[in-house]
């Protein structure tokens, strides 16, 4: 019954929409999570769903999972089927930027209407506690001596971890194609190989290493943020060690292509309200996600910069032409 009512309200809203912005409250929203249930994007989508509904910012929110190929399958479906539809949004992230390039995806992020960056994580480089590498300077020296001898454990080839390893190597003047990168399919497996001392260094998001570092099993050499992070104040940034690399594995929400500026404005406002809500802050704290909210032109510019940099480094690593 509730849905019949909200459906009727929706119909009324659509009919009333041209009359004025005051009536254009969003009653129904579908969020596409371009990943299987449980993954980061899915959890982001479901967190958004939860907060939008509990704070009554949107009447009814549905999450639709369209997994596959680093999010590019969901993106393609979104671009192709929801043109001009203000009631559909998609969750995405930095991983998509790389996947679009390496998978030669026919659709890309210029075909959607980015609304805002919501959360993000920073990359960290870690070594086993017993490793002779004590600092980023030691790692730089080892890489300069022989990049092949330094094996990196991280996620799948061409992903954020691999890109960061490539950027790091390139920044110190070593050919990024020589990065001896060992891809693992899950965080647990790559962490196990690092703890077992099977690889020289591990590269992943800071949160994966944090607990192990606190227990004294790993040593985190550095993070990819601009300044030191509150959760790891003792860990220097790459920049402090003279390696000019800054990268954030962010997640965002975008709207459909071809919506009107007014519709974009409204969605942006709704998302902004959500980000400023208490429920969202609590949700982020619960999940351990950092709030890296960025919207409007600042986000557009950051996105363009990320896409260009990713294109270059993937070419340098040899994963894109």
């Amino acid at each position: 019954m509730k849905h019949l009512v909200s459906g009727a309200l929706l119909a009324a809203a659509i009919a009333a929409a041209p009359l004025g912005a005051a009536y254009a409250e969003i009653n129904e929203l579908k969020i596409i999570a371009p990943a299987a249930p449980g993954g980061g994007w899915d959890q982001t989508a479901r967190s958004i769903q939860h907060v939008l509904q509990s704070d009554k910012l949107v009447g009814n929110v549905q999450v639709l999972n369209v997994p596959g190929a680093g999010g590019t399958i969901g993106l393609a479906q979104f671009v192709n089927s929801s043109k001009g539809d203000p009631n559909v949004m998609i969750v995405g992230g930095y991983v998509m930027v790389g996947a679009i390039i390496t998978n030669k995806s026919p659709v890309n992020l210029s075909m959607v209407t980015p609304i805002a960056r919501l959360t993000g994580e920073y990359e960290a480089i870690a070594v086993p506690a017993a490793s002779p590498l004590k600092s980023l300077a030691d790692l730089v020296a080892a890489l300069k001596a022989d990049p092949q001898k330094v094996s990196w454990a991280g996620g799948s080839a061409g992903g954020t971890d691999h890109i960061t390893a490539g950027l790091f190597t390139k920044a110190i003047g070593v050919d990024p194609r020589k990065v001896n990168y060992i891809a693992f399919s899950g965080g647990g497996e790559s962490l196990a190989s690092l703890l077992g001392g099977k690889v020289t260094v591990g590269i992943s998001s800071l949160s994966e290493y944090d607990a192990q570092a606190k227990a004294g099993k790993l040593r985190i050499l550095g993070v990819s943020s601009a300044a030191r992070l509150p959760e790891a104040p003792d860990v220097p940034t790459f920049k402090e060690a003279g390696v000019d690399v800054e990268i954030q594995n962010w997640r965002m929400i975008a709207a459909a292509p071809g919506i009107t500026p007014a519709q974009k404005q409204e969605l942006s406002q709704t998302i902004e309200k959500m980000v400023k809500s208490k429920a969202w802050t609590e949700m982020l704290a619960q999940k351990g996600w950092a709030n890296t909210y960025l919207s409007g032109e600042a986000f557009d510019a950051q996105l363009a910069k990320d896409i260009a940099a990713t294109q270059t480094i993937l070419k340098d690593i040899g994963l894109a032409q």
Binding site: G38, A192, L195, A211, A215, K287
Partner: peptide, 30 residues
């Protein structure tokens, strides 16, 4: 490995880990 080291080595374990994190527990050796 999940309970002793905080290593999620299967899809289910990864989700259980997310469950732990949700309640502010420190997943890991401690």
């Amino acid at each position: 490995p999940l309970l002793t080291l905080g290593l999620p080595t299967s899809a289910t374990a990864a989700i259980m880990l997310a469950g732990f994190q949700q309640y502010g527990m420190n997943p890991g050796p401690l």
